[in-house]
Design a protein around this nucleic acid. Structure first.
Length: 314
DNA sequence: ACCCAGGTCGGCT
DNA sequence: AGCCGACATGGG
């Protein structure tokens, strides 16, 4: 129930630190190991953008990450040994996605999603950050969520500098203690609207130990979900996001409007039992697939997707 | 101006 | 248990 296939022997990826550049390659073929834009901008993390050179950069944990795809390789810049270890963890590089994708591809609709967007990976984000950012996500669009998170970090997070971007200031995501003592009025500059009070309730409960995020890593999944849902403003969807993205509970499938549409059309019977432990990862492929093929799934009522290309069932 | 956005809450049946 | 409007804000 815990991890995904750990595959220490054949992770499918090789990594090496050359100077301060951390290079990640695919050991199986010449294809890129994973897609930076798909992984960083597919609606799981909200702190990454592209700079004027096209490099992806953003704060994760305590550090600024800056990366680019160069000739079938992913390169991270300004990387220390500690940062390299963090990258391994954050991008879950010890997890081999090949057998997972093979599993998913046994169902045709999932195969279409995986084949169209093979570079997606589910990140291992900080649990409190995942909880908070998905509290901010509710009834909101991704562009604006990124703005809210950015302003929250500027207002309450710890500032630091990076030699990668001289003269700029970056901000870590606030710790529970950074938020627990604040009032809704203090968060006004964030412009989070009705979500501000939810955010503060989460911070206070985590800070007070009333909510134990780490315990949710191992609790039976229904108990973990209920434990998080004691937070005012956290329902089943946000709880599942915190569990999947922040606590690596890969059996969780956050059901937002898009996933409801795509499941109804493509997997009306739900995920097959054999992929249930990793259904959250399959979800990431389906979620992106649905959004990128919005015209097929946006229809309110029947308007089934083109049965020609999206055959139902397996 | 209008609609919607990776939902949840409180108040109804 | 399930439906429905309100909720703050602003991007397209």
């Amino acid at each position: 129930m815990v991890p995904v296939i750990q595959a220490a022997r054949s992770p499918g990826l090789s990594t090496r630190l050359q100077g301060d550049t951390y290079i990640i390659e695919n050991t199986r073929d010449t294809a890129p190991p994973f897609s930076l834009p798909l992984t960083l901008d597919c609606g799981q993390a909200f702190r990454f953008d592209q700079d004027h050179l096209g490099r992806w950069y953003g704060v994760a944990g305590d550090v600024l990450l800056c990366a680019q795809t160069v000739k079938e390789r992913v390169e991270f810049y300004g990387v220390s040994a500690d940062t390299a270890a963090f990258i391994d963890h954050y991008f879950d590089l010890s997890c081999d996605y090949a057998p997972l994708k093979e599993l998913f591809c046994r169902r045709r609709p999932l195969r279409l999603a995986v084949e169209q967007f093979p570079g997606i990976r589910v990140l291992r984000q900080n649990a409190f950050e995942a909880l908070c950012t998905f509290i901010l996500s509710q009834n909101n669009n991704i562009t604006r969520i990124k703005g809210l998170v950015q302003r929250l970090c500027q207002l309450t997070g710890q500032p630091f500098c990076s030699p990668l971007y001289p003269g700029r200031t970056f901000y870590r995501f606030p710790a529970p203690a950074d938020l627990a003592g604040l009032e809704v009025s203090d968060l006004a500059p964030v412009r989070a609207g009705f979500r501000a009070k939810y955010l503060l309730d989460a911070a206070r409960r985590v800070h007070a130990g009333q909510v134990d995020l780490e315990r949710c890593r191992t609790l039976p999944i229904d108990e973990a979900r209920q434990h998080l849902m004691q937070i005012y403003g956290v329902g089943p969807k946000v709880a599942d996001c915190a569990l999947l993205y922040g606590l690596y509970r890969t059996e969780c499938v956050p059901m937002d409007v898009w996933m409801k549409r795509v499941m109804k059309e493509l997997l009306p019977g739900g995920f097959p039992r054999y992929m249930r432990p990793y259904a959250g990862i399959a979800q990431q492929f389906l979620f992106h697939y649905a959004r990128q093929n919005a015209a097929l799934f946006k229809e309110k009522e029947p308007a089934a997707p083109a049965k020609d290309s999206l055959s139902i069932g397996g």
